Amino acid sequence: MTIERPEGAGDPEFRFDMSSMGPALRAMDRLGMLSYGHEPPAWPKSADFGLTSADFVGAADGRVSETMRTYEAACRAVAAWHAEPPTGIPDHKIGGTNDGWIVTPAEIRAALAALAAQPEEAKAGTFAEHPRWDEWIDYLTRAAAHGGFRVE
């Protein structure tokens, strides 16, 4: 899984491989950094916009119709959807798919606040559980200050 910041300074991405994503999610869950039970809007269906495979081929070649622009804007709106108030990073954004979810600065700040509120003994062993933990938390801190990140 690649996590990309849409904007901002610093490293543009943070990569998890198959073996490191699970431990990171388990640590985030254990430390209260994830939020659950959010139901994002349904992804738009291209057929509802009257799009065909030719529209997608044209878009790949740089010929983007107004209908395709409208469809892409609807997809971006779903990817950026977030619960109010955020209580952490929604599990559906980071734990399941690479659908281009946008994790907002507010969601990241809520996750980092949950981490900061944990007693030191709760955090103990997290680095052994996930060797890149400090690097990941540093990335989250920077992403919160620079527009969040996209899960790809």
Rank of each mutant, 00 (worst) to 15 (best):
E120D: 15
G50N: 10
P44D: 07
H92P: 00
A106W: 02
A122M: 13
P105T: 05
L31H: 09
R150G: 06
A73P: 14
W81D: 14
A24G: 05
H82Q: 15
G88N: 06
R109K: 13
T104H: 14
A24H: 07
T141P: 06
T2L: 12
V151G: 01
S46P: 12
H130N: 03
G88D: 02
D11T: 03
Q118F: 01
M28F: 01
L115Q: 04
H146W: 08
L34K: 08
E152K: 04
C75V: 15
W81H: 15
G88P: 07
D138Q: 05
I108L: 08
M18F: 11
A114N: 14
A122H: 12
L115P: 06
L140H: 05
P86E: 11
H92V: 10
A79V: 01
H82M: 08
W136V: 00
E7Y: 14
R69N: 13
M28A: 10
A59D: 12
P40L: 04
N98L: 04
G147Y: 12
R30S: 06
G10F: 03
A9D: 02
V64G: 08
A9L: 10
A143R: 04
L25C: 09
L140M: 06
A122F: 09
M68Y: 15
T126N: 07
T126C: 10
K93M: 06
M68K: 12
T126F: 03
K93S: 10
I102Y: 09
D17F: 07
Y71D: 08
E13H: 10
S20Q: 13
F149H: 04
V64T: 13
I89T: 09
H38L: 05
D138G: 11
S35D: 07
G50Q: 11
E4A: 06
Y36F: 14
W101G: 02
E152F: 02
H146G: 01
E66W: 00
M1V: 01
L140Q: 09
G125K: 04
E72A: 12
R69Q: 15
A42Y: 10
